[in-house]
Amino acid sequence: MIDVLYFAWLRERIGAPKEAVESQAATVADLVEELKSHSEAHALAFSDMTSVRVAVDQELTDMSAPIKGAREVAFFPPMTGG
C-alpha cells in the first residue's frame, strides 16, 4: 500500500487529503494513470499535468520517478511559499 497525499486544489478536487492505494505502478506516471481510473474527480484533478508537481517520500521529483518501495507519494500544484 502507498499513501497518496493531495494538497491545495488537488486536495479539493479529489475531495480528500490522503488515500491508501494498492498499486502495481512502476513510476509516478503509471500511478497517475491508475488513479485517473478511480473516479471522475481523480480524472479531472489529473487532467492537466503541467500544473501538477510530485514528491516521493517527501522529496521533490518528476513524473518519471520510480515508486517501487515508496511509502508516500504527494501531488500538489506549483508551490507558492514566501
Binding site: F7, A8, L60, A74, F76, P78, M79, T80, G81, G82
Partner: peptide, 14 residues
C-alpha cells in the same frame, strides 16, 4: 533563500 522557498518549499496560498 527567498527565491528558493518561494517555489521549492511546499506551501500553497489561498
Amino acid at each position: 533563500l527567498m527565491d528558493y522557498l518561494k517555489s521549492r518549499a511546499p506551501f500553497w496560498k489561498k
